[in-house]
């Protein structure tokens, strides 16, 4: 009779051992933290403990965002070209006075810092058309993608794909398309037309800067609006349909009002993004021809960093003006959003 080999105790599976190790490390960490936090909690009370948990994030925010913002604010009141704040002479509001020294604010040629005002007007035009275009096209696309169409998943990916591209790549690709001997002109010539100097004419260059920016960012906002559309209960449309509402009336009286909070988020995000636009327009046109596509952020960059004499004070003052404008616009939008009558 064959003897049976002794059965060894089966070892624990790897996942179980890893889980055990993780639990051990976690407990060790928690117990160590407990040594500090428990007496602290007894001292300050449970409610105030939240501030201690927020502290790491607040520190990061303070060091990398708040402190540079305050520093920028200080720089706006200094002059000279020295880099370190302690070496920079205080000049009061001189930089702001230079920026706002204008004979006629509607004519940049009458301003001391004409490039700043050209940047302001170009940025204003850019925002107006880019934000409006982005929201409209994103809404139309989201409505289309919300319907039961064939290859819906594919189309959703296609519209989102440009968002994944680096702005520099986007600009370079479009530059190859739009330049004098680019793809679009090759197509026009192939069809028997005349080539168009898309990037050599001020109005064409601004137009294409807006188009490229809408193309590059629309997918992100489409996704947000799509999520908003999908959160509207189907029953509301059923009820509307019973009351005789057609496609247009459903859209006008149901979809739009219910989508308004999401639209507001999209609008604020698109506005902030549009004001901050720099890289893709800079690579596409360099701010030209002349200063036709010079945006305010490029003005700040050029004044502060790209010139031989780096006027950090003037650049900082311009960014304070930009930041203040952005803050006012955002607050205004939020205020308008709140005053929207609920359904």
């Amino acid at each position: 009779m064959a003897t049976r080999a002794p059965v060894s105790k089966p070892s624990k599976p790897l996942s179980e051992r890893l889980s055990g190790a993780f639990t051990w490390v976690f407990e060790l960490l928690m117990n160590t933290l407990g040594l500090v936090l428990e007496p602290l909690q007894r001292l300050v009370g449970v409610k105030r403990m939240a501030y201690f948990f927020l502290l790491p994030n607040l520190l990061i925010f303070g060091v990398f965002i708040l402190f540079p913002m305050l520093l920028n604010f200080y720089y706006a009141f200094t002059g000279g070209t020295a880099l370190f704040p302690q070496d920079r002479p205080l000049v009061g509001a001189e930089n702001f006075a230079t920026l706002f020294d204008c004979g006629n604010f509607l004519n940049p040629n009458t301003c001391t810092e004409d490039r700043f005002w050209r940047g302001v007007y170009n940025t204003g035009l850019f925002i107006l058309f880019q934000v409006a275009g982005t929201v409209v096209f994103a809404l139309v696309t989201a409505l289309a993608l919300n319907r039961k169409i064939r290859f819906r998943g594919f189309f959703r990916s296609v519209y989102f794909y440009p968002v994944l591209l680096s702005p520099v790549v986007v600009a370079l690709v479009w530059k190859w398309i739009l330049q004098r001997d680019g793809l679009l002109n090759a197509l026009l010539v192939g069809l028997g037309g005349e080539p168009v100097a898309f990037l050599l004419s001020g109005s064409w260059a601004l137009f294409w800067a807006i188009v490229v920016s809408i193309w590059a960012h629309m997918g992100f906002y489409t996704l947000i609006l799509l999520a908003g559309l999908q959160s509207i209960p189907k029953e509301i449309y059923d009820a509307g349909s019973i009351d005789g509402a057609g496609t247009y009336r459903s859209f006008r009286h149901l979809t739009l009002p219910l989508l308004m909070p999401t639209m507001l988020v999209v609008l604020v995000l698109a506005l902030i993004r549009a004001v901050q636009t720099f890289d893709e327009v800079f690579v596409l046109t360099g701010g030209g021809p002349g200063s036709a596509t010079l945006l305010i952020v490029q003005y700040i960059y050029t004044t502060g960093f790209a010139s031989q004499i780096q006027r950090f004070g003037l650049a900082a003052a311009a960014s304070v003006v930009l930041g203040a404008t952005l803050l006012v616009l955002t607050l205004l939008q939020l205020r308008l959003g709140r005053s929207e009558r609920p359904l």
Partner: peptide, 11 residues
């Protein structure tokens, strides 16, 4: 040729 002076922005 305009591409270089006109078409190159501020650089």
């Amino acid at each position: 040729l305009p591409d270089v002076w006109v078409g190159s922005g501020g650089e």
